[in-house]
Design a protein around this nucleic acid. Structure first.
Lengths: 293, 293
DNA sequence: TCACAGCTTTCATTCATTGAAAGGAGACAC
DNA sequence: GTGTCTCCTTTCAATGAATGAAAGCTGTGA
């Protein structure tokens, strides 16, 4: 038993003693004699993860507050080893999903914009709704949002913001809960009853404050939305604000999206805004049916 | 040459010898005897293609005129075998990059909208420019476009269209040539001289008509753009139209984007539109610098 | 000259990926 | 009921694309 073998059991000692023998020597010896290779290069991990999943985890690493990341940051955020991160990130850059700047930082690439513009429920809907949303935006002078449901959440598809009209919690591409927001409540109110039941099974909280709500309370809200065709919501955090929301329907009569007018508390007179929101929601619904959706 | 080394040169032999005692005897026999495998299942292709490339080829299969595709259509368009197409498409659906409707058709998923909204040169720029673009849209009553350069092309990042203002060739996410369009000409005029030289090396054509243009002609146009700070372009196909375009600069003084007002021939008085385009381009430039880009 | 942090390249190892084949599911015909 | 489509889904042996530790490289700062 050579000293090299006994030291191999402790990885830290390995690192300290490794320069004692040259790499070529150890390799030749390990293949013949040594069962525990001291400098074992390569090797696939015990439970490999599909490349695709990893690639999308890289994309997931980017956020509103971190739209540009260095290689090391990417590696740390995803937990993927540095060399694998580099290989993947370069691959994604070749495909246009990422872009690399001169200083080496990575960012989301424009190719993804191209794909996103083909999402029927995203840009397809948006292109029809945008002129109407602009009208609503001008008329009310408040934030205007458009959202669709994806599984258990709403996704903001478009947002027209007004600098003076308070903070907006969610931005384009962002996800909103179906029960704590006006946009979500509308989407939930017009979804299939079985889906509603399943959704209301879970324990629900109003999110900035983390206040619990009962299923019965939400059901009452949904009932009100269906009766009036409109949703009123208000929140206190991060600052008092209110929203007025209405549904948009597709050709089949299913709720395709919801729109919201959102403003700082006090600046939003719901009596005034309500007819405008309803009128614009109906106009978009009509246009959606005409355009073959 | 040690025996260990010679055996190391043929790894297959090593592998073949060790499972000789393993219970896969029957399998080994069949593979040895049957030379023509009538029912040979599985097997990796001779030159496999990386999963990532295939996944993005699936996304590439979607187009403006085909935003929803069946499994068979996807398989045909990409040339990927049906079973592999299904596996991949389902995987992408799990990741949110695709969505599957009840009838089995696939479409681009909303998750990609989420990623796209993080592209600094896409949605980041867009969110700053949009209010100004709306102003320009209202004031002129014509199509308004915003584009950035990616390699040898311009990419449309935003478009506000006016139903009555003629056909628009390019939509959001679409790519425009750098020499045949006003938007592209501006992007080219303010790019690095080496890049311009390289770009002008190629044989250039004006695209709907496929008319050749010389590098000298384009150079003269670029010179005019740099002198006046604006680009005028007109095209005859598919119908007569004209555009007025101006550059947007980032903090470093490089051209970050270009904007265009585009209208049917005759409806666009460039004398009137020009000051508006310049003013809005400067306003966006100022805002871009303020917001730390 | 040394130490360090961040990025890039190498390469033996092996498991995720592969597609032909078989197995439904539904529609239309006879 | 049986046959024949088309379209979608599942199975599974074979294997090369994917893997990450280690070494190499580059700039920065003491």
């Amino acid at each position: 038993m050579t000293p090299a073998e006994t030291s191999a059991t402790t990885p830290t000692a390995m690192l300290a003693e490794s320069p004692a023998t040259t790499p070529t020597e150890t390799l030749a010896e390990t293949s013949a004699e040594v069962s525990a290779p001291t400098s074992r290069r390569g090797g696939r991990p015990a439970n490999g993860e599909p490349v695709l999943d990893r690639a999308f985890r890289l994309l997931d690493a980017f956020h509103d507050d971190a739209p540009r990341l260095t290689l090391t940051e990417l590696s740390e955020r995803t937990g993927i080893p540095l060399s694998s991160t580099l290989r993947l990130a370069l691959h994604l850059s070749r495909l246009g999903a990422l872009e690399r700047q001169a200083d080496g930082t990575f960012m989301i690439g424009l190719r993804l914009l191209e794909y996103a513009s083909l999402a029927p429920r995203g840009h397809g809907l948006r292109s029809i709704a945008l002129p109407y949303l602009e009208d609503l935006h001008r008329a009310t002078g408040q934030h205007v949002q458009l959202a669709v449901r994806e599984n258990d959440e709403g996704v903001i598809v478009e947002r027209l913001s007004t600098p003076g009209a308070g903070k907006v919690l969610y931005s384009v591409g962002g996800r909103v809960p179906l029960h704590g927001t006006g946009l979500g409540l509308v989407l939930l109110a017009y979804s299939r009853p079985e889906f509603q039941d399943a959704y209301l099974q879970r324990s629900l909280f109003l999110e900035p404050e983390h206040t619990p709500v009962t299923a019965a309370e939400v059901r009452a809200q949904l009932q009100a939305v269906r009766q009036t065709g409109i949703a009123h919501m208000s929140r206190l955090l991060p600052e008092p604000a209110a929203s007025v929301c209405a549904p948009i329907f597709d050709r089949s009569g299913a709720c395709a999206a919801s729109i919201a007018v959102l403003g700082a508390d006090g600046t939003l007179d719901s009596r005034v805004v309500e007819p405008a929101v309803i009128a614009i929601a109906r106009a978009i619904t009509r246009d959606l049916k005409l355009s073959g959706r």
